[in-house]
Computed example of a mutant assay.
Amino acid sequence: MAYGLSDTALWILYIVSDAAEPCTQQDLCRQCCFPKQTINTAINHLIRDGYLTLETLPGTRNSKRIMLTDTGHALMQTTIDPLKQAEDAAYGNFSDAERQCYLELTRRLNTNLREELQAQLKRRTL
């Protein structure tokens, strides 16, 4: 636990703080690759602690936007903002060549992982 938050809660705050558009639980599940129940439990704790609220999105039956409360914004300033600053500083310590290498290796890893997962799915369906 960082900052007294579960890893899931920390990632939720991180993603919600960056979201340019309304962020829903379904969006979080896709972005974090956490099970729906894990996201739901963490959101409920953050709501109970006064950091988040849910607001029904217009034109939907049950899709809800996750919103930071004033207390949530204050928490974000003491947790997520310093984390992002540390990330920026850490990446800033890379040379241009190291940054390019890191990005290329990350792209390759993601491509290889995607291909491997597709191959495993294909083998299961045969």
Rank of each mutant, 00 (worst) to 15 (best):
M1S: 14
N62T: 05
C23W: 00
L109T: 14
T56Q: 13
D70Y: 09
Q77D: 11
V16A: 02
D88E: 14
I39C: 01
L68I: 02
L109W: 13
H45T: 14
T79F: 02
Q118L: 15
P58Q: 09
A42L: 01
D96I: 15
R99M: 12
P82E: 00
A9G: 08
L68F: 05
I12S: 00
I80S: 00
Q85C: 09
L109A: 09
C33P: 02
E87D: 11
I66T: 02
S17R: 01
Q77C: 12
L75F: 07
E21F: 03
L113T: 15
S63K: 09
P35W: 02
G92K: 06
L52F: 09
I80P: 00
Y51H: 06
G50I: 02
F94V: 07
H45V: 06
P35T: 10
L109G: 07
S95W: 00
N110Q: 04
Q77V: 10
R107K: 13
Y51A: 05
E115H: 10
D27V: 03
R30P: 08
T78Y: 10
R48P: 14
I80V: 04
T53C: 10
L121T: 12
S17L: 01
A2C: 10
A90M: 11
I80R: 00
C32W: 01
Q26M: 03
R107P: 04
F34R: 08
T78H: 04
L57M: 04
Y91E: 08
S63R: 11
K36Y: 11
R108M: 09
L52W: 00
R61E: 06
T8E: 00
T60V: 03
T41S: 14
L54K: 13
Q85V: 11
A97D: 09
L83V: 09
L75K: 03
R124F: 09
Q26A: 07
D27C: 06
E55D: 07
I12W: 00
P22F: 08
L75Y: 06
I39Y: 01
Y51E: 03
C23D: 01
C101A: 15
T125L: 06
E87Q: 10
E115T: 15
L68Q: 05
S95Q: 07
A9S: 05
R48A: 11
R107T: 07
A19M: 06
L105P: 10
L52E: 00
Q100V: 08
D70K: 13
F34G: 03
R124E: 05
P35K: 03
Q118T: 15
E116W: 12
N110S: 04
E116P: 08
A90I: 13
T111N: 15
N112C: 08
E116C: 13
S17M: 03
T125Q: 09
E87W: 08
E21M: 07
L109P: 11
D88T: 14
D70V: 15
T79N: 07
L5Y: 04
L121N: 15
R124N: 07
L57E: 01
A42Q: 00
T38D: 07
A90S: 06
R114G: 11
C33V: 10
H73R: 10
P58R: 08
N110L: 11
D81F: 12
T41H: 15
K64P: 00
A74E: 12
T56E: 05
A9H: 04
L5I: 06
A86L: 12
T60E: 00
Y14D: 10
D49P: 08
A97N: 14
A20I: 01
A19K: 01
D49C: 13
